[in-house]
Design a binder for these strands. Structure first.
Ligand SMILES: [Mn+2]
Ligand SMILES: [Mn+2]
Ligand SMILES: [Zn+2]
Ligand SMILES: [Zn+2]
Lengths: 138, 138
DNA sequence: CGCCACATTGGACTTTGTCCAAGTAAGGGG
DNA sequence: CCCCTTACTTGGACAAAGTCCAATGTGGCG
């Protein structure tokens, strides 16, 4: 994630403690946190960071394409730092656990012309739902 | 949609003016309204209907499987009365217009065992995004 | 018709997110 | 190395979306 910090510096961002902490929180595999979860973890490292700054920073990262917004649950938006490798999501319907997945095939190609209604279709988001091994065992 | 009212009566629902109005509002093709939009249209037909009743009724319809919740935008949930024919959605990124679509192929089959992480995968939701003809013209 | 379990209501409350005016500090120029 | 400019941060007010509840109303059976 320090490459992210490099890229941001390159884009003229001022490097603040707050932005460094948000970037740190968004590091790792299968990370799909809500804004408030990001804030809670950021506060653990930098107690005075505000909710507004977390929202601002996440919004900026999204508009730079460094982080994706995903709508896997129907409540809060989740922020996905894995923006550079296209992927989809597998969500546990019971506990909400989220995994990145890489299905075969190209769902864009599966949408025939007759089903496009004149739209310029550019993107597709696929969410698989099921029950994770943990929840199935319980 | 009067088949819906029949089915509900069969399930022991009391037939109230409010429930009839909500069912009426949810009639038609490509209908994907937010709860507040449902409420606004219901009020036009029955001015004293409350927001709480609209939320209650929508929730009941969803848990009976008569209506689907879809999360095509990242703001309010949308309610989809087309619950009995499986389909996916095509959304305009500019104006939010939503169309039902029926892609070829079965995306569930495209998720290899090695990408299932032990989940029992039962469902998949596909959202295509693009620009509708109207917005492209403007 | 009368009853009562179920349904509806309005408002308070929660969650998620946005906005703003005032204060703070990054970092380039001197 | 310090100062100044300007971008950044902050807390709190506000808004939108949704939940909950005690009081009230009513569908439909007997
Ligand atoms: Mn992801
Ligand atoms: Mn639909
Ligand atoms: Zn689970
Ligand atoms: Zn459009």
């Amino acid at each position: 994630m320090s490459d992210l910090l490099e890229r941001l510096r390159g884009r003229g961002w001022r490097m603040t403690a707050q932005r460094r902490v948000v970037a740190e929180v968004l590091d790792g595999e299968h990370v799909h946190l809500t804004a408030d979860e990001v804030h809670a973890r950021a506060v653990a490292k930098l107690p005075e960071i505000s909710r507004a700054t977390v929202y601002n920073t996440l919004g900026e990262l999204v508009s730079l394409g460094e982080v994706l917004e995903v709508a896997t649950d129907k409540r809060a938006k989740r922020y996905d730092p894995n923006a550079h490798r296209p992927h989809h999501h597998l969500v546990c319907a019971r506990c909400g656990a989220i995994r990145d997945v890489h299905p075969d095939g190209n769902p864009l190609a599966d949408l025939p012309e007759s089903e496009r209604f004149g739209f310029m279709v550019s993107d597709v988001e696929v969410t698989y739902r099921g029950v994770c091994p943990n929840c199935a065992a319980a």
